[in-house]
């Protein structure tokens, strides 16, 4: 029995929602898991902060830790002015973290293993930086592309490279999260399929030998849990760094 490691990423239509032109827009399994994540986060924060007791319950302290963690991150990378973007960054972080964590549960769907999802998130950050920067600083926003102390004869070249570097941001931002999740889930599936292959191929000896790939899965799963958290954190930190450019261009 061959196990297809890509099969877990397939999108299924659950029920159609609306038809635009000839394109049917359906509620997919991906959308269902996103909705589950949003409902989960909302419930967690609402229930966690409902009582506001001085001695917090477990749920309340978890909600407080999540708040404190993101608030410290935003404050240290984008300054106190960056705190106006706190709701945005907190939403990004909680959404990606929850979706990644749900994806680790066997038989679930990992939303962030699709580049269209991570690209949509990264482009949202990119456009926020661009639009906020232009509104706030007007033409001065383009100082971002003009480093100080560069001789005038190579300045056009430098500005050009800076612009390319700026455009490449949403790509590296989205590919990092997507590739990490995709690679991790494929690796887990491949190691799991080794057990089945050995067991069905070699019988009892194979099943006994399957302990080795199983041990690898346990180790990889720990790694993947770390990666799921870390990538959500990295995504949020980079969003803060980019937003910092919109707040203070031309440093």
């Amino acid at each position: 029995m061959a196990v297809d490691p890509i099969e877990q990423f397939q999108i299924h239509n659950l029920f159609p929602v609306v038809t635009v032109g000839h394109t049917e827009i359906a509620f997919t399994n991906s959308a269902a898991f996103m909705l589950a994540a949003v409902v989960g986060i909302t419930a967690f924060l609402l229930i966690g902060t409902a009582k506001r007791s001085l001695v917090p319950t477990r749920l309340q302290s978890a909600a407080e830790i999540a708040y404190e963690f993101v608030a410290t991150t935003v404050h240290s990378t984008a300054g106190s002015e960056g705190m106006k973007f706190f709701p945005f960054v907190f939403t990004l972080f909680m959404f990606i973290l929850t979706v990644n964590m749900i994806g680790l549960i066997p038989y679930t769907f990992s939303v962030t293993s699709h580049i269209i999802v991570t690209a949509a998130l990264a482009i949202t950050v990119f456009l926020t930086v661009l639009i906020y920067g232009l509104i706030r600083h007007g033409f001065h926003f383009f100082n971002l592309f003009v480093p100080k102390g560069v001789p005038i004869y190579i300045l056009p070249l430098i500005v050009f490279i800076e612009i390319l570097s700026f455009i490449s941001r949403p790509i590296s931002h989205s590919v990092r999260l997507f590739a990490n999740m995709l690679a991790g889930h494929i690796t887990l599936q491949v190691f799991a399929s080794f057990i089945i292959l050995m067991g069905t191929g070699l019988g009892a000896v194979g099943w006994a030998g399957g302990v080795l790939p199983f041990g690898m899965i346990v180790i990889l799963f720990a790694l993947e849990t770390l990666v799921a958290f870390l990538q959500a954190y990295v995504f949020a930190v980079l969003a803060c760094i980019y937003l910092n450019d919109a707040i203070h261009p031309g440093h």
């Binding site: 390319l164 570097s165 455009i167 490449s168 941001r169 790509i171 590296s172 590919v175 590739a179 990490n180």
Partner: peptide, 15 residues
């Protein structure tokens, strides 16, 4: 490491 490699690839891809 992953961050650094994607940064490089992103530049090349955009170009």
């Amino acid at each position: 490491g992953f961050r650094l490699s994607t940064e490089l690839v992103a530049g090349v891809v955009v170009g």
